[in-house]
């Protein structure tokens, strides 16, 4: 039987494409995942936890490893081995901590001789680290030969303001903080795990006493509705926070709760309670 030309051509083309597909499937498969937001809102993390979280950012979301090496001279960027100690000597009158933070936020300010000015500002898109992440990353770099003494307050308040990519508009929510506090303590059940200023004391979840200072309104709103999707705070178990608040709370209760959380700026007693 004579095979038609078109059939032969089709089989040939499929074999060629099959070979390419097989080869592409047989080499290492690297998939790029979108980075998760790290939140350290409670501030009750140990230096070890902070350094570990910072190392994760160094290797992951921060993309630092693309250019920097630790203990090995890079062609594009300086070796960061011992940077925790050497940073203190780089600029007279500037501590290691201040030098590292400034280098992350404005890399062009402290160029190492022999290296081009190619490092992006890490709190801006596309890397877009938030304040918690900058805090952890600084701690990790301090740990490379130095002492970990960075505090969240050392990270400028303006840092990471556009971390999500695109503008973060100031939100004016119609919620009532006082009613929100009631939801926090009652129907929402948040108090079972979280502390919020003078309200609650449970250590199960992160302390939210200064959540409004360290997280954006968008993050807070999204976290309530989709806790797993927004990542888990370092040092706390994942999967504990219920994902059903979006269904159990009414729209008003949800807005009230957010409004309450946005009053938590670490000033001791919950502002709503002061009113």
């Amino acid at each position: 039987m004579r095979v038609p030309v078109l059939v032969k051509v089709a089989v040939f083309a499929l074999v060629v494409m099959g070979a390419y597909t097989y080869y592409a499937n047989s080499i290492p498969q690297l998939r790029s995942e979108p980075p998760e937001e790290l939140s350290l809102e409670g501030g009750n993390v140990t230096p070890e936890q902070l350094v570990k979280a910072g190392e994760g950012i160094f290797k992951g979301k921060g993309t630092c490893e693309v250019c920097h090496r630790i203990g090995q001279k890079g062609t594009r960027a300086p070796d960061l081995g011992g940077i925790g100690a050497s940073a203190a000597k780089r600029k007279a009158g500037t501590s290691a901590k201040a030098y590292l933070i400034e280098s992350l936020l404005d890399p062009g300010a402290h160029l190492v001789e022999g290296y081009p000015n190619i490092m992006p500002k890490v709190d801006r898109p596309p890397i877009g680290l938030n304040r918690s992440e900058l805090w952890a990353l600084t701690a990790f770099m301090e740990s490379l030969g130095g002492t970990v003494d960075v505090k969240l307050d050392d990270i400028p308040k303006t840092a990471g303001s556009a971390a999500g990519g695109g503008q973060v508009a100031e939100l004016k929510l119609p919620g009532d903080p006082k009613a929100g506090q009631a939801v926090f303590m009652g129907k929402g059940g948040c108090i079972a795990c979280h502390k919020a200023g003078s309200v609650g004391a449970s250590p199960v979840g992160p302390d939210l006493s200064q959540i409004a200072k360290i997280q954006t309104p968008e993050y807070i709103m999204a976290k309530i509705l989709n806790p797993a999707g927004m990542g888990t705070v370092a040092g706390y178990p994942g999967g504990v926070m219920p994902a059903t608040l979006g269904q159990t709370l009414t729209a008003k209760e949800y807005l009230d709760l957010v409004a309450f959380l946005l009053t938590l700026k670490g000033e001791g007693a919950a502002p709503a309670a002061k009113k």
């Binding site: 083309a13 499929l14 597909t21 998939r31 979108p34």
Partner: peptide, 17 residues
């Protein structure tokens, strides 16, 4: 997420065919 090469290759082959 951005897929790995194998996944992309499968897709490219289907579309090319």
């Amino acid at each position: 997420w951005t897929p790995a090469l194998g996944y992309a290759a499968n897709m490219i082959t289907i579309v090319t065919a």
